[in-house]
Design a protein around this nucleic acid. Sequence first.
DNA 1: CAGTGAGCGAGCTTCCGCTTGACTT
Length: 777
Amino acid sequence: MQTNLVIVESPAKAKTLEKFLGEDYKVLSSYGHIRDLKKNEFSVDLNNFTPQYEIPEEKVSLVKSLKTAASKADIVWLASDEDREGEAISWHLAQVLGLNVEQTKRIVFHEITKTAILEAIKHPRHIDINLVNAQQARRVLDRIVGFKLSPVLWRKVKPALSAGRVQSVAVRLIVEREREVENFKSESSYKVTAVFVSDKTELKAEFSQRFATQEEARAFLKSCQGQQFVISDISKKPMQRVPAPPFTTSTLQQEAARKLGFSVAQTMSVAQRLYEAGIITYMRTDSVNLSTLCLNACQKEIEDTLGAKYAKRRQYQTRSKGAQEAHEAIRPTYMDQHEIQGTAPERKLYELIWKRTIASQMADAELEKTIITILPVGSKEASDANFVASAEMVTFDGFLRVYRESFDDENMEENETTTIDEKLKENQLLDYKEIQATERFSQCPLRYTEASLVKKLEELGIGRPSTYAPTISTIQQREYVQKGDKKGEKRAYKLLTLKAGKDIKESEKSEIVGNEKGKLLPTDTGTVVNDFLVANFENIVNYNFTANVEKDFDEIAEGKENWQQAMEEFYKKFEPQCEKVLHERNEHKAGERVLGIDPKSGKEVSVKIGRFGPVVQIGSATDEEKPRFAQLSQGQSLQTITLEEALELFKLPRELGSYEGASVSIGTGRFGPYVLHNKQYVSIPNDIDPMTMELSDAIKLIEERKKAEAAKHLKSFEEDAEMQILNGRYGPYIVYNGSNYRLPKTIKEPTELSYEQCLEIVEKESAKPKMAKKKKK
DNA sequence: CAGTGAGCGAGCTTCCGCTTGACTT
């Protein structure tokens, strides 16, 4: 009997597969890539663009066990995903496991169903080296861009910054959107609405044109005064609405954000748990495809619960750029499972996925749209300036029965549903009860949320399902972008009201506009880095850069282009560009702004991104005296800070007085403003202004801090002052001789532990092997 | 966590895409 080894990328997939295949098949997982460029080195030979691969430390033992399994098996089947990355994984596996690259069996399937797998086993192929080369090109290009561009930023802006093909475009989108919002000038126009009456029936309608000025709106209302109206036309037309396609990673992230308020990372971690439990299919996918198995299950489910007329089998086409469709869409594994056990987020996300999947296989919703055209009595018929009342009636709910997609820019007023009385007839006369002209403003562009940024990146073909969430976290970690709220502003708008039998009345109301929550806002660093990159590397941060290199990768994958030559072509132009920018001598640093002259010293005051972030500087390095520095405080910005505000910052540190016999002073440091008392630092929260706070405010903070310290302290021991039990972020733990030790999970009441028991725990914990430190020699 | 910063100097930072756990104070 022959023994087989199948290697897939994900352990959950391996588990499922093993059930489908017989006993002669052992299924193992590679846990993604097993080899990569070296982590901390450039690792590409610039003479011929040969990559230097290594097995990362954390994969060494895994690779060892794969090797052993491979040597024992008669046949090894490489079953990584059918896309560029998957092909490369198979190639690396073949090389590392010592398999023959030309002859090893390579199989692929897009859905984890028994038929798909058995079919795949029947039709093995070999590794497609062209596709592998396309991946190597992608990998090497990203390394070149990232590792050449980042050092330019270290030199020109600030150490430890980063730039890359994906992250830098993400930051650019956010910076540019912020500018659009800043520069947005809203234009107002007048929208005219009316309430007509006939007998006891009321009918709401809107005038088909808007008026640019109040005068025009007033003149129009004047012309309506005392006027009678007539229904010139009632038309009805049927309309259809179609369901949204099943979820991909990007659309799941968007809907979970809109409907459930999940962050992108939260959605992915909940989905991961559902996937590992075998409840949903793979959650990192760009495909909207559903397996026949699922289509059948949906159809049965819909027919059984709602009836055959609700079912409509559909297969969707992926529209997104660069999609590689290695998996199915995200869907429940079993469609007859309407809900699941689990935590609240798990249940909610599952319900969302189930509904979206079911709805995608349901009938169109059918609506009847009624449009009533209303004209002033005696006016010419064919005019396109008229009042229009419209209403939509659902005649067959179809998929709407189950699921309705949400949108980011949902406009509340448009959602008002008007019903139209069936008794109304053509040529019927109407009187107005009220006609109103309301000042409306053009809509300011919305700042990006995590999810709407993902949507935009996907549209541009930048990034992959597996990287959307990490990219968003990277640009926040580098402090290019912050998640935050923008307070709305009050805006007044005018109203002109004409009531039956009365004159036109003018009034004013106000509304709050521009209130945004949880939006991505660029920091000073993000803005300066972006402007620097746009000024010097527009070709790289261009929105089409990825799309263009993808064309090259496609050529390589088709065997029409040599990948190393393609890299050389790119590097030939890119390298001199980096060199030029790196050695340019500029009078001012990137993003530097001169605010004016310090009246005290007569020296220049400027702001820029310093070694530790945005900073004000008095004087320059060429002066005899060293320049003075002060960090900008929270909420201040390089772009908007004034000379006066900048000079204020130099008033710290300042003495407030004394408390309990020790002086209390206020300063500012690495982690913002602080109160210093008895060598103890207490951070000042954002809502207190360190410039104006008084001694009593500082004492309050000092006392609060003491209280918090006391709450943290759970127990000490008479036997040994060095042994303490403290309460921390991850629950109680032991501090002994300056080191921390975890408590075993079995301990319920840590305060009841004796000194001896604590010592025992310390000994056991220190015997455990420590995690290898990240730092390499 | 720590209260810094302008250059002789030592050495570090960084990319994107595949995958999961083990671990944190």
